[in-house]
Design a protein around this nucleic acid. Structure first.
Lengths: 125, 125
DNA sequence: TGAAACCTTCACATCCGTGTCAAGGTCAAG
DNA sequence: CTTGACCTTGACACGGATGTGAAGGTTTCA
């Protein structure tokens, strides 16, 4: 599939797809004429990457945790070095922290909105 | 308190504090000589803002949800207009989505790390 | 064959959160 | 009074993710 089609399928732009490739987030083949040729599976992968970016993760971080996210549960045994494990554990823990913080703040916003709606109801009556 | 002291207390820099003020995230008094004069309560507020920024939220979003986060539960009744409520509900729901996504990915990373460690153990034996 | 729609690379522009530096004001200690 | 540590504003610079546009090649279709 060509870049325009993938862009449409993933609700993004050719510019972004080229950027993700340049950052090493996706691997892309080339057709004989030089056009990029995208595998079907990239639809899901790119959607995934978009989600992570919108959630505030950097391409640098995403690149490092991508192997964890590939669907076929084929662990790359070569990656079982202590330092790679330590790096991933760091990312894992930072994700946990981030989730905690967002959860607390989500609760605060939800509470506040609830109170505001109560207040609005009171006025309406 | 002056800018340097607050920066130290919040483990940040004067540059950032000025920027947060410029973006309307904090309100800052001035001493007679023109120096910024920070209230004690800003220590907590700035730490909070730092957390949200590190969690990937924009200053624009943070500014909008800040009223939800002020400690004294004094709702600003003037804010109970339908559009403000709708905006906050939008932010609330986006936060929920973000948390969901991060939670899924955290689990994936955790699983992967677990498998890697199993693998490393196998080699060691 | 020629026009339209797609692709290529390259480059410059934008926004955001920061760093950094210059030029100058304030203040406390020596 | 001077020195040094702090503050002020203003500007320029940078990296990251993206938009946009130029100059040109390819495909498709009439």
């Amino acid at each position: 599939m060509r870049i325009g089609q993938l862009a449409e399928l993933t609700d993004t732009t050719p510019r972004r797809l080229r950027f993700y490739e340049e950052q090493g987030l996706i691997r892309v083949d080339r057709a004989a004429n030089g056009y990029r040729d995208y595998d079907e599976r990239l639809v899901e992968q790119v959607s995934h990457i978009r989600g992570l970016l919108e959630a505030g993760l950097s391409t640098r971080l995403i690149k490092q945790i991508l192997p964890c996210l590939d669907d076929p549960r084929d662990i790359h045994f070569a990656d079982a070095t202590p330092d790679i494990i330590a790096t991933l554990e760091g990312h894992r823990d930072k994700l946990a922290q981030r989730i905690e913080l967002l959860t607390r703040n989500h609760a605060a916003v939800a509470d506040y909105v609830g109170a505001l709606k109560q207040c609005a109801l009171g006025v309406e009556r």
